[in-house]
């Protein structure tokens, strides 16, 4: 089952290359020798029933799951553009600059819209002088890219937490852009949004694709179909099948995949 039967991109084209990754939460094993190649510049969806390990895998790529402490143990390798991110000498700050993340619930910081968008940039510029004009430019570019500029341009100094959920989630994407990440991880980014906002956010994914590699976890199969080029299906901590989205949904190779997309479980 851990075998991947699909034609895989060659590893050198991969933005993310997951190789034989296993992960334990204490004594509970959440991932079993998972392999996954994510093509640079593409949108790849991770689907599977609750508890299948898709979020765990996603949260391993920027190592944010290490917040839980030493009780998380990971083996195998995860390469982002060729660099092994699980290595001991990886600087987490640098990794997370390259690999941005959008969460389930929009989580803007309790700061102004402006400070939210510039937060990561200010953290990473390490003493470098940046003028107000340059900051304004970054701010506008980022907000325009997520199609939020017109909505918030008159209240950039207002609190980000006062925005609608849709705008908050867009802002959470916008704040990643000024540091030019290579990869954006999204953990069910629309689960707190209504259908219209979901639609708007999915549209945004297509805008960002190409410039950024997007790996998105979703519990919503329709979303995976609409908003991804490739889909990987996971079950019980194992990678079952990973193929171009249309193929996976139309002609799944594995029985488990077929059962899942037909709604027999999950």
């Amino acid at each position: 089952m851990a075998e991947q039967k699909a034609p895989q991109p060659r590893p050198e084209d991969s933005a993310i290359s997951v190789n034989m990754v296993s992960l334990w939460y204490g004594s509970f094993r959440a991932l079993f020798d998972v392999n996954l190649e994510v093509k640079a510049g593409s949108i790849t969806a991770l689907i599977g029933p609750s508890g299948c390990g898709k979020s765990t895998l996603l949260r391993s790529v920027n190592r944010i799951n290490e917040r839980l402490g030493s009780y998380v143990r990971t083996t195998g390798s995860i390469r982002v553009h060729g660099h092994d991110v699980l290595a001991d000498d990886v600087e987490l700050a640098q990794l997370r600059r390259q690999v941005g993340m959008v969460f389930q619930r929009p989580n803007p910081l309790p700061l102004s819209i402006r400070d939210n968008v510039l937060f990561a940039h200010r953290i990473h510029r390490a003493g470098e002088r940046v003028t107000r004009i340059e900051e304004d430019e970054l701010l506008e570019t980022a907000l325009r890219q997520v199609l939020l500029w017109d909505e918030v341009k008159d209240r950039l100094n207002g609190p980000a937490t006062g925005l609608s959920l849709e705008a908050q989630q867009k802002l959470c994407i916008a704040r990643l852009l000024p540091v030019k990440p290579k990869v954006i991880l999204m953990d069910e980014p629309t689960s707190a949004l209504d259908p219209e906002a979901t639609d708007a956010l999915e549209g945004l994914l297509w805008e960002l694709k190409g410039e950024y590699t997007i790996l998105i976890v979703t519990h919503n199969m329709a979303q995976a179909r609409r908003a991804s080029e490739e889909t990987a299906f996971m079950l019980l901590g194992k990678m079952v099948e990973h193929r171009p989205t249309q193929e996976l949904f139309l002609t799944p190779h594995e029985q488990e995949t077929a059962d899942y997309i037909e709604g027999r479980y999950g």
Partner: peptide, 13 residues
């Protein structure tokens, strides 16, 4: 905690 997680995910120490 979502604030801390958000900031850490952006690479804040």
């Amino acid at each position: 905690d979502s604030y801390r997680e958000a900031a850490e995910a952006m690479g804040a120490t």
